[in-house]
């Protein structure tokens, strides 16, 4: 529905910006958590706080939140046998409500076996290919995003607790480098919007701190759940850059670094964002 309204949109959006300020929360109203010493922010604020009251209301009610359609689909899939080993997720992990509690909040985490970090999507596919002998799910597939959402949901309300020391340290540093590197024709870094200008408008967009505690998130724009690396990809498209590939080492490093920028924030998966 976008193409016919191109020229109108430019006018409408410009006019919108002034009146919009009254609707989107002012800084004083945005609740956050105090950041640990040495952190980039004084206060770490979830993307939830940057959204309108209508969008927040969609997240606040578990029946109204469309992200729960994915949670319910994956709850069934958790118990469904797949692959030549005749196993389901449950065969090894039992009840997700207990065994997966806290798992999603601490991802990505170091894998001794692979000698690199893995994120939740990667770990799910490792389980599928190694233990279930099932086909790994492609990135952005409904199945992988649903299961990632379901596992992360088991940590809802728990603080983001990614580890960044030891062998994770070079990955953290690489992620930081990517975060501050300007890319694309618009020549913007992650930091240009989400560190220096959060709480301000970039045209119609009310910029947040770019926190990841709500991912996968139900985006109103896409009307479906969007995994984190797809959002990273989208940001890079938006600045007219060439995005890294989802699940690449670059996005994995960025995921680790950005998770640290939101350290301590409660997991909100499945959140609702614009």
């Amino acid at each position: 529905m976008s193409i016919r309204y191109g020229s109108l949109a430019v006018l409408a959006t410009a006019a919108l910006t002034l009146s919009a300020i009254a609707v989107f929360g002012q800084e004083a109203e945005r609740m956050g958590i105090p950041a640990p010493p040495g952190h980039v922010f004084k206060t770490i604020i979830s993307g939830y706080q940057f959204r309108t009251k209508e969008t927040r209301a969609l997240q606040d009610d578990d029946l109204e939140n469309p992200g729960f359609l994915a949670v319910e689909r994956a709850a069934d899939m958790w118990k469904t046998v797949d692959g030549s080993e005749g196993k389901s997720c449950m065969s090894c992990h039992g009840e997700a409500e207990t065994t997966m509690k806290g798992v999603g909040a601490a991802m990505p985490k170091w894998s001794e076996k692979l000698n690199k970090p893995v994120n939740l999507e990667q770990q799910i596919n490792i389980c599928r290919s190694e233990h279930m002998k099932a086909q790994p799910w492609p990135f952005k597939s409904k199945e992988l995003t649903d299961m990632t959402t379901f596992v992360r949901f088991q940590s809802r309300g728990m603080p983001v607790a990614v580890k960044t020391d030891g062998p994770m340290s070079p990955w953290f540093e690489r992620g930081k480098e990517i975060y501050y590197t300007r890319v694309g024709q618009l020549d913007l870094a992650c930091a240009s919007c989400h560190e220096k200008n959060n709480g301000k408008f970039m045209r119609a967009d009310f910029l947040s701190q770019g926190q990841t505690n709500g991912f996968p998130t139900y985006r109103l724009r896409d009307q479906r759940l969007v995994p984190l690396h797809e959002r990273f990809e989208g940001c890079m498209f938006d600045v007219r850059g060439v995005p890294y590939k989802p699940l690449s080492d670059e996005f994995l490093a960025l995921e680790i670094y950005v998770a640290w920028r939101g350290i301590g924030l409660p997991v909100e998966t499945p959140s609702v964002r614009n």
Partner: peptide, 26 residues
């Protein structure tokens, strides 16, 4: 998400200069 289309690219670029307040078309 899909690839950015031409309209999106145009809007994104144009937005940085479109600051004039104009009457709504409502």
């Amino acid at each position: 998400m899909g690839a950015i289309n031409r309209r999106q690219a145009f809007l994104l670029g144009g937005g940085f200069v479109a600051l004039t307040v104009l009457p709504m078309a409502a």
